[in-house]
Design a protein around this nucleic acid. Sequence first.
DNA 1: CCTTGACCTCAAGTCGACTTGAAGTGGTAG
DNA 2: CTACCACTTCAAGTCGACTTGAGGTCAAGG
Lengths: 149, 149
Amino acid sequence: MLDISEVSRRSGLPASTLRYYEEVGLISSAGRRGLRRIFEEAVLTRLSLISLGQAAGFSLTEIGQMLGATGTPSIDREQLVRKADELDRKIRELTALRDGLRHTASCTAPSHLECPTFQRLMRDATTHVVKGRARRAQDRRAAKDKTPK
Amino acid sequence: MLDISEVSRRSGLPASTLRYYEEVGLISSAGRRGLRRIFEEAVLTRLSLISLGQAAGFSLTEIGQMLGATGTPSIDREQLVRKADELDRKIRELTALRDGLRHTASCTAPSHLECPTFQRLMRDATTHVVKGRARRAQDRRAAKDKTPK
DNA sequence: CCTTGACCTCAAGTCGACTTGAAGTGGTAG
DNA sequence: CTACCACTTCAAGTCGACTTGAGGTCAAGG
């Protein structure tokens, strides 16, 4: 049983963030001692998963879904596979970008923008970045229409 | 020479975003026809680079630095290499996360949190996520101290 | 027993990256 | 020539993810 400062110390997250996470249902405390939250050790694992998910570019909402909204961390397998595929795409993008940067750094062409290798890398990598952007914009509009005010 | 709607169409970005990018100095227009902005073709390349950078998790500010604040896209080679290394780290993180997800999806253990493979993947991957978080928090505090109000 | 300080709540603030809306302007089709 | 409408500006709003601050509570040490 850990108090909030202990969780903070061991997770590296400020107490304010832990309270916030509890408020939005990402973690839960095992109860209170007086006013004070007490946490189980398991929360540390959950916090690791959250940080990891964030590093992967998922929103807290998505992470909440992946971890199971309600306490128990039993997860929808199909959803996991979808997320993994998403990550695969992202990794390919980043790899292309990294190669692009490396190439640009060592390319002796007068302007790397003229280099065909660079151009190809870029075009490849950008295609579905834009698609993703368009999709998210669409999602936003759809959400807004459902809640017209 | 393209007008803003043409750039919007070909880049997939709303006109409002293009104006915003110009305002913050990420792109520039070749001039005006009356009130209306006109852009060179080259802006499309630049916009691709910007989207790419975003997909890689860089802020617009960082992207501005990478692309060269002032018009010309000649870039600091050393900075490029640093960014590439950063991407390498991020790619490794994401790969670990992806493997973790895949493993979790197929693991038959009663709870994947008890699976040693999963635990190792997670611990490995989270370590410097937390470091990065701490660093950014530190940066914020430093920036605030310099501009005490 | 009383003070201290780590914890609490709740409202408001911040930051990045845009979007939205109202009100104005001017190139061009009819 | 004039009406239309795509463009413009500028201020304000939004969203996610937190942080900050004021004011309150209570367990433990002196």
